[in-house]
Nucleic acid binder design. Sequence first.
DNA 1: GCCAAAAGATTAAACGATTAAGCTTTATCA
DNA 2: TGATAAAGCTTAATCGTTTAATCTTTTGGC
Lengths: 327, 327
Amino acid sequence: MSTLKDIAKEVGVSVATVSYVLNNSGSVGEDVKKQVLAAAKRLDYRPNRRAQAMRTGVSQSIGLVLPDLTNPFFPELAQSVENEARKRGLAVVLVDSQNNADAETQGLAILQQHGVDGIIWCPVDDQVIQKATPLNCPIVLIDRPSQGFDVVHSNYRLGGALAAEHAIAQGHTHVGILCGPRNIDSAEQRRMGFCERAAGKLTIAWEIEVPYATSLNNDAFSALSSGKASLVFAADDLIAIGAINYLNDKGIKVPDDISIIGFDNIPWAELVRPKLTTISQPITDIGRASVDVLLQKLQNPAKVACAIVLDVKLIERDSVAHRRTTV
Amino acid sequence: MSTLKDIAKEVGVSVATVSYVLNNSGSVGEDVKKQVLAAAKRLDYRPNRRAQAMRTGVSQSIGLVLPDLTNPFFPELAQSVENEARKRGLAVVLVDSQNNADAETQGLAILQQHGVDGIIWCPVDDQVIQKATPLNCPIVLIDRPSQGFDVVHSNYRLGGALAAEHAIAQGHTHVGILCGPRNIDSAEQRRMGFCERAAGKLTIAWEIEVPYATSLNNDAFSALSSGKASLVFAADDLIAIGAINYLNDKGIKVPDDISIIGFDNIPWAELVRPKLTTISQPITDIGRASVDVLLQKLQNPAKVACAIVLDVKLIERDSVAHRRTTV
DNA sequence: GCCAAAAGATTAAACGATTAAGCTTTATCA
DNA sequence: TGATAAAGCTTAATCGTTTAATCTTTTGGC
């Protein structure tokens, strides 16, 4: 890799002059400017970002800290963040904590040592955000709001409401909820949104808490096969797919015997049979928005923290049936 | 963030001394050593990696260049690489080229500017590897072998053979192949492995080339519904799932009417119904092996290029039926 | 023709680390 | 005792940039 020095030697000027023309600053004669530009191209000069970072304090890189790439919500997010960042010439340093707080801490330390300019972070849990302060660099949270931090997430409450509305519109009266971890805000919001809109119109036959995964627990199984609900609202698509598969294996037909609504609209939703009716999160927009916000914060560190809440929408597919009669 | 200088001032010695104790080099008195270590802990000192990189030329970071995180093969790989790298204190800079050669080039340029120590790379296509040389840093290829480069991939030929063997063992005689892009080596190897082992035992009723995706083309559709094959070998699970879904939608039963074998054993394979019988790639091992090889190359740049070929295995699930009679 | 200002270039310090070389002080040994 | 070595520490250069400060030359105005 050629350096400023190489160009300077080639043209016969000082490195400062070369730096000035490459940055369009200082005052340099047209003639020299042309020569420098030509030499830079000829030598295929690329600025050494770490030297720049050293001097200016900005590294042109951001950190992306995710809990689990294996959860199909995140690859799309990562892709979106990476793309948006690359468009702006930023490098993305990836950390996948595998849902482990210690790993996350270690990952954050690495980001800090490398001096990323800012971090886009979906923390493994809510408590762990305390570790953010000593990081001492702008942070944008994904999905998990926290006092004093910028955050971008979907309108989960609206999503829950949309699901309830759909259930009502399709003539269901008795529903079950497979809700996610109650201590995770984004899961709780979905539940609340659903319940609020359901109030007075839907009777909630049962409500079971399960982890975000396709493997459900026995409580969920017995609730699903109890026949008390004609529709179940799952806190995310993974859970919904887990439910569909369980019911399928049991010989209970979806949606004829029981309807399922998911949440997230992960790619699998369209691949599973029946195709999953679900609430779609604008994952790509979330990624884009989060780097936007981060960049704003970088330009103006005094910026007051804000929440960006993106609309969700119902994607009707084949896992919800219309009901004439009540259960 | 505190620096060597801060520690030096605190203890009252020179930065050189501090550096020596922190690196266990030079000769420093026990007393000073203790004081420095204590001060370092007290001030929560973390080495500034970019300054280290500046001076030593090694940045403690690697690049990971992937064609598409949305393809379910890659998230697991990325996770594995990140984890293995983090264990060793390395940062991972992610590039997702979205199957676009220009984006990939841009991503590689960013990696270069940031001075990653090496790159783990699954190129969007075979030609594009030419761009590697000017990068001038160790590269380990994933999945796509190329003259003079280290590479790690699965034993695709074996995988194809395993699939053929299974077809034979289950009594099939007429099979179809949904093969991946012929210009991609890893796809071609699967096909060849299958055909070699099939020779003389299986008659290949048809062979259709499709892209790595769940959306199949019309040629594939008509072949699938032609009834000429009782089993089809799909070049990857995405294709297999596309086939299953098409057949399902058509009312053709899998595996009763037609059996399907996939390749990759992506997470979806277990979620789709019928559960997919497939050839499993050891994705996590591939990730681990690739950072291993990269690190070897870093320690010894003269290391001769090698290929690491990892065994695959057949995962029997529900998409292949046993046949008594021939078609 | 002279002075001030602008234009065009250079010098040198700084960012935070590493490390060869140099300088003291103390210990070793004939 | 005096030379030599070892131990313990500091100085200063260096990596590739940026940028304030400085210097020199040209230009313009009166």
